[in-house]
């Protein structure tokens, strides 16, 4: 085969233009996918009294009633997650309300904190934060954990395999696993899969019908608000500015759709949680501030992925030019 320098350059240019147009074309398509109109919830810790005179906080109760049909109905006996000598089964502890379980998607932390020399009771309703860029959703290997257009992050119980990766990558380890239920039972339940992951879905079905989440309606002190995310974010910021208060959930993990406002710094609240609520098992949730979202720093990765084909075309240009410049084309 013969090739002149000119024909080489022509072909190399054409392939380079082709590669570049594919890349820029893809960029245009993808630029239009950002959604608007997310909803959010806001917990006013200055109003929440933890329903201390009730057996169960009203928001927790409302959540359990509303989601009764969504709770798992596992097949017994539930086998261990081979080769691990354990499995997760909360079906015998459905009554538990003081932690997150597959049967309890929100709980209230009753804390005593010391602030400015005073002992103050603080009650913190906990549930999924519904992050703006949720690692649990983006990293789900089966693509069945979704950041919905309305804002809630929703796990599809029909597609979930129960590997609990979402719980591992969630900064708060919110989703909880129930074994003996779900898709893995249909595949090789002795060897792979672990059940289905459960967590708050912000009552996604109700939101789509134009209603509010169950916990919002149930709160006797209107301590839980529901509305468009930007409105609640603005409300929280204004409130904090006017009252020298604090906001949680606006910056954490790159931003969430679950805000908390309080007169007490969240560093102080988190210390109380660590001291009084955490017990070393999943389902008890800390409140660390300024959590960084590892997926929010993709700059170098992205430019690397975009530069890779360009570098490939250039390198091939050099290689093929050297082969052809050699005069003979006998692959020497």
């Amino acid at each position: 085969m013969t090739m002149t320098r000119r024909s080489f350059l022509k072909r190399a240019t054409i392939s380079g233009i082709a590669a570049a147009s594919i890349m820029t074309g893809a960029g245009k398509v993808l630029a239009g996918t950002r959604s608007t109109g997310n909803y959010a919830i806001l917990h006013d810790l200055n109003k929440c009294d933890g329903c201390v005179h009730q057996d169960t906080p009203k928001c927790v109760l409302a959540c359990r009633v509303k989601n009764e049909l969504n709770f798992p109905q596992p097949q017994q006996p539930i086998k261990n997650y081979w080769p691990q000598p354990k499995h997760e089964d909360w079906s015998g502890k459905r009554h538990v309300t003081d932690r997150l379980t597959p049967y309890n998607w929100t709980y209230v932390q009753h804390l005593e904190v010391e602030h400015q020399g005073k002992k103050i009771e603080v009650h913190v309703p906990r549930k999924c934060m519904h992050c703006d860029n949720p690692p649990c959703s983006t990293l789900c290997p089966f693509g069945v954990n979704d950041k919905t257009a309305e804002g809630p992050v929703v796990i599809n119980p029909k597609g979930c395999f129960g590997g609990a990766k979402c719980r591992d990558v969630c900064p708060w380890h919110i989703p909880q696993r129930q074994g003996g239920v779900g898709l893995y039972l249909e595949v090789v339940p002795d060897l792979a899969g672990g059940g289905v992951m459960y967590k708050c879905d912000m009552c996604h079905d109700l939101i789509k019908q134009g209603q509010q989440p169950a916990c919002v309606n149930a709160c006797p002190r209107n301590a839980i608000m529901f509305g468009p995310q930007y409105e609640l974010h603005e409300y929280a910021q204004n409130w904090a500015r006017q009252n020298q208060g604090y906001v949680y959930g606006d910056e954490e993990n790159g931003g969430t759709a679950n805000f908390y406002i309080s007169m007490i710094p969240f560093e102080v609240i988190n210390l109380a949680i660590i001291d009084q609520d955490l017990d070393g098992t999943t389902g008890r949730v800390d409140m660390a501030v300024n959590i960084e979202n590892p997926l929010d720093e993709p700059g170098n990765i992205l430019s690397g992925l975009l530069m890779a084909p360009v570098a490939g075309v250039l390198a091939a240009g050099i290689s093929t030019y050297q082969i052809m410049k050699g005069g003979n084309d006998v692959e020497d």
Binding site: R11, A12, A19, V313
Partner: peptide, 11 residues
């Protein structure tokens, strides 16, 4: 991949 496709097209 870009390297190889270019190589095929040019060579």
């Amino acid at each position: 991949s870009a390297y190889y496709v270019t190589y095929l097209i040019v060579s």
